[in-house]
């Protein structure tokens, strides 16, 4: 019958179409992302390796009032860091349709008497189907309904890592001002939750986490590393450990931190701040702050 397909083809069709649509959307987004984030590729001369593509940058002049007057600094940031763009993806889909199913006898049953036994697949009943019309009088209008819910996607993890590497951008004093400190444009250290990777603290509970501290290899004169909670969270969370001030490590180190939560916690999460400082050989002090998000649960700890 016209418009009749194997049942599995009809069932798989909408799913395959959604996969294809998602791939097309990702390709379109990548095209935009590529043009937005990077400068055009430079043509390499005669068989030479092409130069790595450069991030597109945006520049600001930061003005700050000091006792000596207005201090100005030139700051350049990757555009990608300034504007978080992400593609869209299918979050959920609901497909609804009715099929007019027609069962055909197995091929083996139709085979002439005495023919060799057919394979098991050939003995199966062949189910043919077509999308049923919306009404008996409207034989050409199918009743397939597809409802797709989309969600905004963040960038892939690799790009986020790249952005993290450039976070802070490049900052230098504008001409006429004293030279910027050595090592400008690099982070003093990086930090991330190691265990658990996505810590969750619940009201009234206590949480122990390991934070992976990775100092900059060029770090000179590490000073203190201060742990603090973002303003507004200090009454909701308390840092139990470490009890004494710690130093910014010169080598990669795991820092054990224990936090205690009040009986009520803000929804979402709170920021744990790690403020590290270093004093260079020239006496110039550099600070860096890493903010780690602690998710807050909404239930009490299970009682033993």
């Amino acid at each position: 019958m016209a418009g009749e397909f194997d049942l599995h083809q009809l069932l798989a069709g909408p799913i395959i179409a959604m996969n294809d649509a998602q791939a097309d959307a990702a390709a379109s987004f990548y095209e935009v992302f590529d043009q937005f984030a990077f400068e055009p590729a430079q043509q390499a001369a005669g068989g030479a390796e092409p130069e790595p593509r450069r991030l597109r940058m945006i520049s600001f002049v930061a003005e700050r009032a000091t006792a000596e007057g207005i201090e100005r600094r030139q700051i350049s940031m990757p555009l990608l860091q300034m504007i978080p763009i992400g593609g869209i993806g299918i979050d959920s889909a609901r497909i609804q349709f009715s099929l007019a199913v027609n069962a055909e006898p197995p091929a083996a049953a139709r085979a002439p008497a005495g023919a060799p036994a057919a394979a098991a697949a050939e003995r199966a009943v062949a189910l043919k189907a077509r999308i049923a019309p919306t009404a008996a009088r409207d034989a050409v209008s199918g009743n397939l309904q597809v409802e797709i819910m989309l969600k905004q996607l963040d960038l892939p993890a690799g790009y986020l890592d790249m952005i993290a590497e450039t976070q802070g951008g490049v900052s230098r004093r504008v001409p006429g001002e004293p030279a910027a400190p050595e090592g400008e444009g690099t982070e003093l250290f990086q930090a991330a939750f190691r265990e658990p990777a996505e810590p969750l603290i619940v009201p009234g509970g206590e949480l122990s986490v390991l934070i992976d501290i990775v100092p900059n290899p060029r770090l000179v004169g590490p000073d203190g590393l201060e742990l603090a909670l973002a303003t507004g969270a200090t009454k909701k969370l308390r840092i139990v450990k470490p009890e004494t001030p710690v130093r910014l490590p010169a080598k990669r180190q795991l820092l054990a931190v224990t936090l205690a939560a009040a009986p009520t916690l803000p929804g979402g999460g709170v920021l744990l701040l790690l403020k590290g400082a270093s004093t260079g050989a020239d006496g110039v002090k550099t600070e860096h702050e890493v903010r780690l998000m602690l998710r807050c649960g909404d239930s009490e700890l299970p009682r033993p």
């Binding site: 993290a164 400008e184 982070e187 930090a191 996505e198 550099t286 600070e287 702050e289 998000m293």
Partner: peptide, 9 residues
């Protein structure tokens, strides 16, 4: 000089 990195959120 201070820089900030958002993490985990």
């Amino acid at each position: 000089r201070r820089t900030v990195r958002e993490g985990g959120g």
